[in-house]
Design a protein around this nucleic acid. Structure first.
Length: 561
DNA sequence: GCTCAGACTTGGAAGAATCTTT
DNA sequence: AAAGATTCTTCCAAGTCTGAGC
């Protein structure tokens, strides 16, 4: 569908027109009868202070609001929004009572659920209108869907893990904060009445339409296109092509880093051991982070001595490395891995005379590592190994697990298992769903019921057969046939349920989404579907099919990653 | 080399929509 | 038709990596 690189190096588009962002709705003050209490007494808050209070009230049931850091950060920022009078009265968060406000919001949510069909439809229509007007742009000759055309509303920052900034106030974004990017010859979006944009620029070397600076980390946020767009799709395709190029030289690279374990230079040894981890364990690169600004998490290059334990022997295996650290999003990585003796010896060396909080690879960072990788293969960076290993694992697992004689549900179970192997490799975990146990039990009772139904059907079949033997007439023969069919149908249904139960159980703590969306070359899945006659809808839902339209178009059943 | 801003990808949870059961 | 379960979509945080400036 797309031809390769229609533009000179670095140029992303020739024409870009859009309507600008949709701002968060303005704050609506609470009705008079919704009270806030301080120290047991009713207190009427100024609009600004009230708005921030509602952010807290809405989160009251969440564990966040019990955390010391969250409360401290919130209170500090809240006080900044108060009038001087409020400031002098409200000095202690523990004396603030938000429960009435919280109840009000719960009632609102309930009321929204209870709305009539017409009212709900009205809201839906309004959302659709907004999407139609602001949700699309024109990039070159295509109308494209925008991913996030709505500006994030103000609220309380919720970091993940142990974030030092949790609870801080995310301020409201105004047109004056907004940079618009579009082409000169396009119809330039107009700011809301009485407002101005911070800037309008025409930079066709970037893909974003709108940007602003967020106040918690001071980082830039963007409005960009949907994954179904040409610009994202092409990039995605390129990513997998880079990973396929790695496939061709990965053996050479592996031999190289194994050689480097013996290097005289410490830096080279560290680089080689780190690369081994990235390759073998699919670890992330691990950039340095500013201390105290974010949760304390690490990747490969930023591992510290305290994150690994060396076991010369463990459970009958030699040279075992025990990893235990918090990775991206503060997800725990825990793994015991037997490694080659040389790696083990090197790790011992790297850890000599170091404190637990010292860097394991003190001579290495991601920039050094990536420069080296660039020399090994053009376009090679640390994350390409994750993509490569994820995709190659899927392909290999599909080959191994797919049984040609299986029916469709069983084949899909195999697919999910292959997907799961990748998710485990990439350490994509989720909190078990709150309703997990219950839903498993429900499914089990469905299975039991189905088993009984099957037993009944079999009994009926048996007696029908006996009957037919005696009577020897057409009618009873037909009855046998239809009973046979019924048994078969129920057997199939039972099998389907059992497969579902297995799949769900195995998936309890595994998140498949990220690998499916970001690491697995979609052409592998498309080819697999074609090969086994599985409808693509069983593997990809509508959004996913849109994102992977290029692959669905491109891949035949003999596609090899 | 090092730092930092900038741009873009990757990440799980929460909320909304839809389907299924009661 | 309400409630409950499941799936899809949105949200927005948190990574990776590049390149400019010194």
């Amino acid at each position: 569908r797309w031809e390769e690189e229609r533009y000179p190096e670095g140029i992303k588009w020739k024409f870009l027109e859009h309507k600008g962002p949709v701002f968060a709705p303005p704050y609506e003050p609470l009705p008079e009868n919704v009270k806030f209490y301080y120290d047991g007494k009713v207190m009427k808050l100024s609009t600004k202070a009230e708005e921030v209070a509602t952010f807290f009230a809405k989160m009251l049931d969440h564990e966040y609001t019990t955390k010391e850091i969250f409360r401290k950060n919130f209170f500090k920022d809240w006080r900044k929004e108060m009038t001087s009078e409020e400031k002098s009265t409200i000095t202690n968060l523990s004396k603030c009572d938000f429960t009435h406000m919280s109840q009000y919001f719960k009632a609102q949510t309930e009321a929204r659920k209870q709305m009539s069909k017409e009212e709900k439809q009205k809201i839906k229509d309004e959302n659709e209108r907004l999407l139609k007007e602001y949700g699309y742009c024109v990039m070159d000759n295509h109308k494209e869907r925008i991913a996030n055309f709505k500006i994030e509303p103000p609220g309380l920052f919720r970091g993940r893990g142990n974030h030092p900034k949790m609870g801080m106030l995310k301020r409201r974004i105004m047109p004056e904060d907004i940079i618009i990017n579009c082409s000169k010859d396009s119809k330039i979006p107009s700011p809301p009445p009485g407002h101005k944009w911070k800037e309008v620029r025409h930079d066709n070397k970037v893909t974003w339409l709108v940007s602003w600076t967020e106040n918690i980390q001071g980082s830039i946020k963007y409005i960009m296109l949907n994954p179904s767009s040409r610009i994202k799709g092409e990039k995605d395709w390129q990513k997998y092509e880079t990973a396929r190029r790695l496939k061709k030289c990965v053996d050479k690279i592996r031999n190289q880093y194994r050689e480097d374990w013996k290097s005289k230079e410490m830096k080279v040894r560290q680089r080689a051991v780190a690369l081994y981890f990235i390759d073998k364990l699919a670890l992330r690169a691990g950039n340095e982070k500013e201390e105290g600004e974010t949760a304390d998490t690490v990747g490969c290059c930023s591992l510290r001595v305290e994150h690994i334990k060396l076991h010369p022997e463990l459970d009958g295996q030699e040279y075992v490395v025990e990893f235990d650290f918090l990775g991206k999003d503060s997800i725990r990585y825990y793994n015991k891995v037997p490694v080659e003796k040389r790696v083990f010896k090197n790790l011992q060396l790297f850890m000599e005379n170091k404190q637990p909080e010292d860097d394991l690879f003190d001579r290495l960072n991601t920039s050094i590592l990536n420069k080296h990788l660039q020399d090994l293969m053009e376009g090679l960076t640390a994350k390409v190994f994750r993509t490569y290993n994820a995709s190659i694992t899927l392909q290999q697992q599909l080959k191994e697990l797919t049984n040609p004689d299986d029916n469709i549900p069983a084949k899909i179970l195999s697919y999910n298992r292959a997907n799961r192997a990748v998710a485990i490799l990439c350490n994509h975990q989720r909190a078990p769903p709150k309703t997990f146990e219950k839903s498993m039990m429900n499914l089990q009772s469905k299975i039991d019921a189905k088993k009984e139904q099957l037993a009944d059907a079999r009994r009926e079949l048996k007696s029908a057969k006996a009957d037919a033997k005696v009577r020897r007439d057409e009618k009873s023969k037909k009855t046998v046939e239809s009973k046979k069919k019924a048994v078969q149908r129920i057997e199939e249904q039972l099998m389907k349920l059992e497969v579902q139960a297995t799949d769900r159980e195995e998936n309890k703590q595994i998140a498949l989404g990220t690998s499916k969306l970001n690491y697995l070359d979609p052409r592998i899945s498309v080819a697999w579907c074609k090969k086994w006659g599985i409808p693509i809808e069983k593997i990809y839902n509508k959004t996913q099919r849109e994102k992977f339209a290029w692959a669905i178009d491109m891949a035949e059943e003999d596609y090899e990653f």
